[in-house]
Amino acid sequence: MTTSIDISGESVVVRANGLRHRVLRYGREGDRDLLVLPGITSPAVCADFLAVHLAGQGYRVTVPDVRGRGESDRAASGAYRLTDYAADVAGLVDVLGLRVPVVLGHSMGARIAAAYAVLHAPDDHGPLLLVDPPTSGPGRGPYPTSRQAFLDQLRQAQEGTDADGVRAFYPAWPERELEMRARFLATCDETAVVETHEGFETEDFFDYWPRLRGPVVLVRGGDSPVVPDGTAEELRRTRPDIPVLTVPAAGHMVPWDNLPGFLDVVRPHLLSYLEPKE
């Protein structure tokens, strides 16, 4: 049985930071802007299920195809660094007229959100929700998913896979999200994946973590190898003012693994960022 893959977001194409970017937009104009930044192998369409829920919380949600993914431009080799991604976000915020957006980033997207806030909006960025950012880096352990594992999944998708093939890697996911990944993973450029994975081990999230300002919340999966218990304690110790919250029964792909649990954790923060209705 084929699961529906209807996408409710409006597709918009813009130019920012020298590249063509496709974004999906959800919700009503005039609502608080929320920018969702996906992970290393997640085109915007793969976050559709999450964007729909977040738009229902009173937000105008924007999800980009990050450079090298989906329908956005590919970049030259060497241009998949955190500084490149952060500059893309700054360009998108400007060209789309996002008003001090809340920024929710997952995995790679959480690292990009932190870099954007520090490098481009140190005094006036909106609240940050950082979901399971890779905490590997120089002097730390390797990222728990190997480059070869990413490439194996990418090549499987390029050759043609289905929900059952994806289920071998993500057994707890809903059927629709398995099918979405099966259909759209192949839109991720191999150079983008390889160079971003290298960045997980050469660019340190902890270079940005102490410099974050304003409302920040870090959310991790209770079973995630990317932000394990010891690292969570280090995050709390180095920034005791930033809540580090845990979603139970979730690995690294937190909202995919346990959407109700994820929404339970983030909903109070999302509601607190909304302006009171007159």
Rank of each mutant, 00 (worst) to 15 (best):
V103A: 08
V103G: 07
V103I: 15
V103M: 04
L104Q: 11
G105V: 05
G105S: 02
H106G: 13
H106A: 10
H106E: 15
S107F: 00
S107P: 09
M108W: 05
M108C: 05
M108R: 07
G109R: 01
A110M: 09
R111E: 03
I112S: 04
A115S: 09
Y116E: 09
Y116D: 08
Y116A: 12
Y116T: 09
A117T: 11
A117K: 11
V118A: 11
P122Y: 06
P122R: 06
D124A: 07
P127D: 00
P127A: 10
L129H: 01
V131Y: 01
D132Q: 06
P134T: 01
P134L: 03
P134K: 05
P134W: 00
T135H: 02
T135G: 06
G137T: 01
G137W: 07
G139D: 05
G139L: 09
G141W: 01
G141H: 09
P142V: 10
P142F: 02
P142H: 07
Y143S: 07
Y143M: 05
Y143F: 12
P144T: 05
P144I: 05
T145K: 14
S146N: 01
R147F: 03
Q148P: 11
A149H: 13
A149V: 11
A149P: 12
F150Y: 12
F150D: 05
F150M: 04
F150I: 00
F150L: 07
L151Q: 01
L151W: 00
L151H: 01
D152T: 09
D152G: 08
D152N: 08
D152P: 02
L154H: 01
R155P: 13
R155H: 15
Q156L: 14
Q156K: 10
A157W: 06
A157I: 03
A157G: 08
A157C: 01
A157D: 01
Q158P: 11
Q158F: 10
E159G: 15
G160P: 06
G160C: 08
A163F: 08
G165T: 05
G165R: 10
V166S: 11
V166D: 07
V166Q: 14
A168L: 12
A168K: 14
A168V: 13
Y170P: 14
Y170A: 15
A172Y: 14
W173V: 10
W173C: 09
R176G: 00
R176H: 08
R176P: 05
E177W: 15
E177T: 14
L178C: 08
E179M: 12
M180A: 14
R181N: 15
A182I: 08
A182K: 09
A182W: 08
A182G: 04
R183F: 03
L185E: 06
A186R: 15
A186M: 14
C188S: 10
C188F: 02
E190R: 06
E190K: 00
A192T: 06
A192L: 03
V193G: 00
V193Q: 02
V194H: 02
E195C: 01
E195D: 04
T196N: 00
H197P: 03
H197M: 02
H197E: 04
E198F: 07
G199R: 00
G199Y: 00
G199K: 02
